Amino acid sequence: MGPDPDEQGTLEISAAIAAIQTRIHKTGLSLKESADFGLFEKTIRSTEDKYLMEDFSPRFFDLHGATAFWIGAYNSSGNIVSVQAAKVEDLKDRSLADHWQQQQRRMFVDPNPQVRFGSEHAHDAYFMRGRIVYHGNLWLRGDIRGKGLAEPLTQLGFLVSLLKWSPDYLYGLMASKAAEKGFGVRVGYRRFVPRGTHWHIAPGHIRPDDWLVYSTRSDLFGLAKLIVRTLAEDPE
Rank of each mutant, 00 (worst) to 15 (best):
G2N: 08
G2E: 05
P3V: 10
P3I: 08
P5S: 10
E7D: 08
G9T: 01
E12H: 09
E12F: 07
I13H: 07
A19C: 11
Q21M: 09
I24T: 00
I24M: 04
L29W: 10
L31R: 11
L31Q: 08
K32F: 11
S34H: 10
F37P: 03
F37S: 02
G38H: 15
F40L: 15
S46A: 15
E48Y: 12
L52R: 09
L52Q: 14
M53C: 10
M53Y: 15
M53P: 01
F56Y: 15
P58E: 05
D62F: 14
L63G: 08
H64D: 12
T67E: 09
I71K: 09
G72S: 09
A73H: 11
N79T: 03
I80D: 00
S82G: 14
V83T: 15
D90G: 01
L91T: 03
R94G: 01
A97K: 07
A97L: 02
W100Q: 02
W100T: 01
Q102M: 10
Q103A: 06
R105N: 11
F108D: 00
D110A: 10
N112H: 13
G118I: 02
S119R: 13
H121V: 01
H121E: 00
A122Y: 07
F127W: 11
M128G: 01
M128N: 02
M128V: 03
R129P: 00
G130Y: 11
R131L: 12
I132P: 09
R145D: 01
K147I: 01
K147Q: 15
P152A: 05
P152C: 06
T154S: 14
L159Q: 04
L163A: 15
W165T: 01
W165I: 01
L170S: 14
Y171I: 00
L173W: 13
L173A: 08
A175G: 09
F183I: 13
V185I: 12
G188S: 05
G188R: 04
R191C: 03
F192W: 04
P194Q: 07
T197G: 06
H198Q: 04
W199D: 00
I201C: 02
A202I: 00
A202M: 03
P203I: 01
H205K: 10
P208H: 06
D210S: 13
V213I: 15
S218L: 12
S218P: 00
F221V: 00
L223H: 02
A224W: 08
L226S: 14
I227R: 10
T230L: 12
L231G: 00
L231P: 00
A232D: 08
E233F: 08
E236C: 03
E236Y: 12
E236A: 12
